[in-house]
Amino acid sequence: MLINNAIYLAWADTKARYKRSVLGPFWLTLGNLIGVVGLSLVWGILLKEDMSTFVPSVTIGMITWQLVAGCIADGPTTFVRQANMIRNVAIPRGFFVLRGLFRQIINLLHNLVIVVGVVWYYDISLSSQTLLSCVGLILVLLNLYWVMYLLGILGARFRDVEFLVHAFLPLLFFISPVIFRADRLPRDIYLIWLNPLSYFIEVVRAPFLNHMPEPKTYAVMSGLLVVGGAITMLIGKLKGRQLAFWI
């Protein structure tokens, strides 16, 4: 029930946002298509990469990044944006998080068109291993749920969080293996694995490109889910009731 309504309202949000534009939500697809093509051309030539493996890698990397970054960027305003609803109807907090998360999932679904195009153009063979990408995606989404919830609470109480997050996001983009592949780096840049977002991308991308992700990727993702989920639940229990006063 809650989930159905969150999905419907997320779709209504998306429709409302593109209401008076001609292409509507397909701006999402077009915008990312331009990004993927541009990045592939520039970096593919600069890094002298083989386009038939580089383009699929950048595509999946970018689309996963858009999902993760979208949730992180929207996170701090999850509750603040819905302030007048929260002040008027008693709705479980999780509803607003789900609504925000589904908005990002709708964006992701629009971007899948690009993935289909790339798979077709480069004639990528899909195997049963590709299904592991879906498992990875589910792990990513579960983690993003607590990330949005936590950022939402923090962002409602401390209004600086939103700007702080926006300031660090571009930096995170460069230290996450979006354009480059982590396994192409010289060994001494092991630092990349200290960035949790690297796992978010790897867990979806590696199986798609027929590389088995290392077991530690799944370990880190599950660990983050348990620890992050617990912290969020604790903060929600202790401070969540006060939320209506903060927004």
């Binding site: 209504a12 409302a16 609803m85 002040r87 008027n88 109807v89």
Partner: peptide, 16 residues
């Protein structure tokens, strides 16, 4: 079951 009408325009999406 509670229903509220507290703030004018709360929850309305002006573009829709």
């Amino acid at each position: 079951k509670v229903a509220t009408v507290l703030e004018l325009g709360a929850g309305l999406e002006p573009e829709l």
